[in-house]
Amino acid sequence: MLSCPVCGPKLSVCCTILSVWGIVMLALMGVFYQIHSVALFEDIPLNHTKWEEDNFPLEDVHKAYEQTGLNCFIAAGIYVLFFFFSCWQQRLNSKANYETS
């Protein structure tokens, strides 16, 4: 096991907070994409010219929504890993701190 931490005590706290935020927000966004939230219509991968040519099929829109929703869930998952990593770093730091003092 690595004994010396990669990031310092403050950075690891920041990373923990950021990853908690990332998990919550990205997971929620994923849910909203899954239920095809109208407010997120501008944030989906939709080729507007092609969509218009095909006479606005709803299936394209739904597909785009689900794709981004999946991406959001994956990103949230990565943040979960990142969360564990920064927690581990934090523990290492506090341990190092404890030993020196």
């Binding site: 950021l18 927000m25 989906i44 990103a75």
Partner: peptide
């Protein structure tokens, strides 16, 4: 629109990894 829309509008799985990095910047 300038930051978050870019990874969200990616039509592949790579968007997820961009999303992780860019979300950090956005936050």
């Amino acid at each position: 629109t300038m930051v978050m829309q870019f990874p969200l509008r990616m039509n592949s799985i790579a968007g997820a990894f961009f999303l992780v990095a860019i979300f950090g910047f956005w936050a």
